[in-house]
Amino acid sequence: MATGGRRGAAAAPLLVAVAALLLGAAGHLYPGEVCPGMDIRNNLTRLHELENCSVIEGHLQILLMFKTRPEDFRDLSFPKLIMITDYLLLFRVYGLESLKDLFPNLTVIRGSRLFFNYALVIFEMVHLKELGLYNLMNITRGSVRIEKNNELCYLATIDWSRILDSVEDNYIVLNKDDNEECGDICPGTAKGKTNCPATVINGQFVERCWTHSHCQKVCPTICKSHGCTAEGLCCHSECLGNCSQPDDPTKCVACRNFYLDGRCVETCPPPYYHFQDWRCVNFSFCQDLHHKCKNSRRQGCHQYVIHNNKCIPECPSGYTMNSSNLLCTPCLGPCPKVCHLLEGEKTIDSVTSAQELRGCTVINGSLIINIRGGNNLAAELEANLGLIEEISGYLKIRRSYALVSLSFFRKLRLIRGETLEIGNYSFYALDNQNLRQLWDWSKHNLTITQGKLFFHYNPKLCLSEIHKMEEVSGTKGRQERNDIALKTNGDQASCENELLKFSYIRTSFDKI
């Protein structure tokens, strides 16, 4: 039985969820670079991206490699990797027998973001014989899940209580170790020597080791999670996991709180800001991140802002960003909400898709409305799209047979046209069989910064309504002859009103 693990408890099935942008060198404390989270699957090609990484700022997932063999891993080693800020997950990587050479110096898994409450997941690794993470000293947050690894031993010899604050939620089941077939031998045991430290858990006094050649490092209890030197002297209180010299914040392997210019500090002093819960960055760093993602459509890219001495992905609820200094300031009234469309555009074809934009005031991208039916549609669209004030790209209304009016965009005031449909149009209306009105132009103002209007096959939309939009939106004169079809717009509506004058002759039985 794995020490510190839980057996036999019912657990939810383990679901495996399925960018080499360097964020800056980590400095003297770390020998390499800070790398983003990685999802490495199918083959070993991307694994080489770990070569210079000291910190993975995010998670590391290595999974679904069915053609790899043990010899493929023999020359692979990433000794610079010290810390993973989120979680480490391995799933069905064939041929991998140990992690001792792959990650010989991995010391800390912070667990800032977890995989279903777990910071370390080893699942269905069919050839893994031992973990071998002999320098792993601290899992700051989260638990361990090690399950269905039929060859995995050296679990009962690990004292997880020396690595985690609590072992109650560890789930370590259905491994070879369960069948008591392992016969784990710690260093020196074969020669009758006791080389590794022994600890007591559940009444068992057991030597602690990761492999037959690597003991588990056990520091004096007084050192807590700070770690200790090879001689057993406690590291500085700002260290986490390990250090090369005692009581020196510049000799830590990793930091308990924050890293700044080669030393570990309790908090980031001005003019620095907390970033990702582990390091200090200056304003320029946060500003660069903001600008890199301002026009990016890459998933996970955030326009970072500053709030409460932190550089964070977005302002919290009730705050909006001051564009001059990136500071989050309290909103006066309802907060603006910028919604970034991942692929640059979004099609609204149902109430469900409209709900995804609920509360958005600025759309960074283009909207395509293609709704053919739905219950209580006008009210639903207004509830979900009615706060949109600005669209950076274009607005396209296409084959939306259920629409009679666009009044559900009740606050839309600006279409920038930074991206144009077919390279020309910022407003595009095609084949809307029941569209009769755009907006009530006596109450609604709309500016279209650039781009043209396109109207074709809107049989109940009168040309007068379209011409009014040209005047109000500032697009009059931009359109070419064929942009607004004269014969297919309003051709099934009563669009022309003329005053009919009647004269009559009164007659009676005795007068003409």
Score class of each variant (00 low, 15 high):
residue 200 V to G: 12
residue 101 D to G: 14
residue 81 L to G: 00
residue 232 G to L: 03
residue 67 K to V: 11
residue 90 L to C: 15
residue 44 L to M: 12
residue 99 L to D: 00
residue 65 M to C: 05
residue 275 F to D: 01
residue 234 C to F: 02
residue 69 R to E: 06
residue 244 S to F: 15
residue 71 E to G: 13
residue 46 R to E: 13
residue 137 M to Q: 05
residue 284 S to M: 09
residue 210 W to M: 02
residue 229 T to R: 08
residue 98 S to I: 01
residue 290 H to Q: 15
residue 43 N to R: 11
residue 43 N to E: 05
residue 304 Y to E: 06
residue 30 Y to S: 15
residue 303 Q to K: 04
residue 229 T to V: 10
residue 127 H to T: 05
residue 214 H to F: 09
residue 176 K to M: 05
residue 328 C to P: 00
residue 265 V to H: 04
residue 253 V to Y: 13
residue 34 V to F: 09
residue 82 I to G: 08
residue 83 M to G: 11
residue 34 V to Y: 09
residue 308 N to E: 08
residue 306 I to D: 15
residue 136 L to T: 03
residue 38 M to E: 13
residue 62 I to C: 02
residue 166 S to R: 07
residue 90 L to V: 06
residue 97 E to Y: 10
residue 272 Y to M: 05
residue 135 N to S: 08
residue 199 T to A: 07
residue 82 I to L: 12
residue 276 Q to S: 11
residue 329 T to R: 14
residue 198 A to I: 05
residue 310 K to I: 09
residue 159 D to P: 02
residue 108 V to W: 09
residue 205 F to R: 03
residue 99 L to I: 09
residue 285 F to T: 08
residue 319 Y to W: 07
residue 285 F to I: 10
residue 129 K to D: 04
residue 214 H to W: 07
residue 272 Y to S: 11
residue 277 D to V: 06
residue 130 E to S: 10
residue 32 G to S: 05
residue 224 K to H: 03
residue 77 S to T: 12
residue 143 S to M: 08
residue 33 E to C: 15
residue 185 I to A: 01
residue 250 T to P: 02
residue 298 R to F: 09
residue 43 N to H: 10
residue 230 A to E: 12
residue 297 R to E: 14
residue 65 M to Y: 05
residue 132 G to E: 00
residue 299 Q to T: 15
residue 91 F to G: 00
residue 146 I to K: 00
residue 141 R to D: 02
residue 189 T to H: 12
residue 327 L to N: 14
residue 175 N to M: 03
residue 320 T to F: 07
residue 31 P to N: 15
residue 152 L to C: 05
residue 143 S to W: 08
residue 150 N to L: 14
residue 293 C to G: 13
residue 318 G to V: 08
residue 261 D to I: 12
residue 326 L to P: 05
residue 249 P to K: 03
residue 282 N to I: 02
residue 236 H to M: 03
residue 205 F to V: 04
residue 102 L to P: 01
residue 188 G to P: 05
residue 255 C to E: 00
residue 332 L to C: 06
residue 201 I to V: 07
residue 121 V to E: 00
residue 318 G to W: 14
